[in-house]
Design a protein around this nucleic acid. Sequence first.
DNA 1: ACGGCTGTAACTATAATGGTTACAACAAAG
DNA 2: CTTTGTTGTAACCATTATAGTTACAGCCGT
Lengths: 146, 146
Amino acid sequence: MKISSRFTVAVHILALLSIENEAHCTSDWIAGSVNTNPVVVRRVIGQLKRAGFVQVRQGTGGAFLAKDIKEITLLDIYRAVDVVEEGELFQMHEHPNPQCPVGANIQAVLEVILRRAQAAMEHVLKEIPLYDVVHLLAEKIESSRS
Amino acid sequence: MKISSRFTVAVHILALLSIENEAHCTSDWIAGSVNTNPVVVRRVIGQLKRAGFVQVRQGTGGAFLAKDIKEITLLDIYRAVDVVEEGELFQMHEHPNPQCPVGANIQAVLEVILRRAQAAMEHVLKEIPLYDVVHLLAEKIESSRS
DNA sequence: ACGGCTGTAACTATAATGGTTACAACAAAG
DNA sequence: CTTTGTTGTAACCATTATAGTTACAGCCGT
């Protein structure tokens, strides 16, 4: 099972807004870069808006960044698009038998360990500001232009 | 999205085989502890068998451990039950627009970062032998008996 | 008033999960 | 050698999430 592409799409959108900040970034135009449907883009942008990362111009349209890219981490984005519940990356089986000593205790033991594993993954995301992604991207774009 | 409970069920089963090693561990009996259907248990055991962690007695039935629990890590189990593809915890969107500088380069940038995040999570699992789980479990069982 | 864009609802296809029934193959016990 | 209990696997189902799509009311600048 994979973590929904909503997350990587959200990063794509934000990086796009940062790099093409002159353009009139409509959902249609963004969808062209991501290669998906404009409605999918609007849905993700809706979540980014609620998190305060972007704003959208009413009527005339177009999204733009509403927060410094040094102050948005990948973890913030990951949380904003709601791809993994807090502390619930791993699915436990519902009701192990409380009569069985193993069934009665396995969940408590596993929960501690699995939360730690999840936290390790999320910690990596937390340490990476969107700024880094944008700058790695800018470098790559630069070098591929040559 | 959550990682399939096949993983936690597999850990449950292996811990059960270790702790109740006297018992005649049929899929029916194990299913009673996990609280699921025996076929679900047999499917998981099939994967654990392929990985060489358990053996099953033909005809008469019953599974038992085939490897030292100090030599099985949670990562091994996680791999055995095939819950997350190698390096693909995060879903990328299929074909970002190669004409767009962002679309053309975002995946390469994200892949490095996201693989690192996944690796951090899996590293935690790698450091935990089944032995630790079984012993934490045994302690808990002991203390809840009092 | 027009035209282009957004936000959202509603519907769809696809895929994975976990549960269930069914049954052939197998081996031990009588 | 037949009975009994178990395994391995196929087949099917309900449920859920994802991602794409159509449709349309509402907004706002021109």
